[in-house]
């Protein structure tokens, strides 16, 4: 066993040491430090040490097409409304809809959740955060204790301004915002599949607190990177959300006084 082990690694090690000693032997300390730094820089290059420098988000402009992963998308407008089809805001909230024209330019269908992962909920504009698992557990507990009839899903939205609470309790931890509900504007049905070559106008919908009164929302579009095979999980063939690739402020239309969905104002 012992002999089998010190075959090639031993040789590699000895060769490596030879090379290092041959180069470093007649160097001064400063030279050695310099060479070490250069070697370290070279070593980190393949791991994308420099890619951040060029990651500069392009602007999102309503009406201008951008390319994200398999999608060509154009932000059309942002609207706040009351009811949107089957989506009803909790009291004290309204619906925030980002209307987007989207075409899957790849050869294969994509799930609409891929689009959802490219457009996260706008930050800092009082989008009602996702219930964390611990919140959910406490909700279930209180439900069991008090009255099981009360809906666990609608209750937390009605609690005293949930969007304000995160600021009160902790400044470091931002609450996780929910992924958008994605609805086809043409018929108000839920989009699940985006087939290649078909252009849809979809609305990405979140719940927003009525406390937000701004006239613009910041939209971020995250780049999608194609992962052939994940080195971590060995999952293959999917789009991984990466860095923010596009960002900009989109003017927000207020339709809360109107009941119809945004699709009738083309």
């Amino acid at each position: 066993m012992k002999h089998a082990r010190n075959g090639s690694p031993d040789i590699a090690f000895r060769v490596g040491r030879r090379v290092v000693s041959a180069v470093a032997d007649d160097m001064s300390t400063m030279q050695r430090v310099g060479a070490g730094v250069v070697a370290a820089l070279v070593a980190v290059t393949p791991f994308g040490a420099w890619s951040k420098v060029e990651a500069q988000a392009d602007p999102v402009v309503a009406g201008t097409a951008i390319e994200v992963g398999p999608f060509d998308l154009t932000v059309v407008r942002a609207v706040k409304t009351g009811d949107l089809g089957y989506l009803t805001p909790a009291p004290g909230n309204h619906m925030l809809a980002l209307v987007v024209d989207v075409t899957n330019t790849s050869d294969v269908p994509e799930y609409s959740s891929t689009l959802g992962s490219a457009i996260p909920a706008p930050r800092g504009v009082d989008v009602v955060p996702q219930e964390s698992l611990t919140d959910l557990a406490t909700n279930l507990d209180t439900d069991l204790d008090t009255d099981p009839g009360a809906g666990a899903g609608t209750e937390p939205g009605a609690e005293p301004s949930p969007s304000a609470s995160p600021e009160d309790e902790s400044e470091a931890e931002e609450p996780e915002l929910p992924p958008a509900s994605i609805v086809n504007v043409a018929d108000a049905t839920t989009m699940r599949i985006l087939n290649p070559g078909v252009t849809y106008q979809v609305a990405l919908i979140w719940q927003q607190s009525d406390e937000f009164t701004g006239s613009e929302i910041p939209v971020e579009v995250v780049g999608l990177d194609w992962i052939d095979e994940s080195r971590l999980t060995l999952d293959n063939g999917y789009w991984l959300p990466g860095e923010v690739a596009f960002q900009g402020d989109v003017p927000l239309k207020d339709n809360t006084d109107r009941t119809p969905a945004p699709e009738d104002q083309q």
Binding site: V108, P109, D187, T189, T190, R192, I193, P196
Partner: peptide, 12 residues
Amino acid sequence: AEGRTFWPTDQA
């Protein structure tokens, strides 16, 4: 004919 694939919808 190009080899693109399309999946069915569960709508309607």
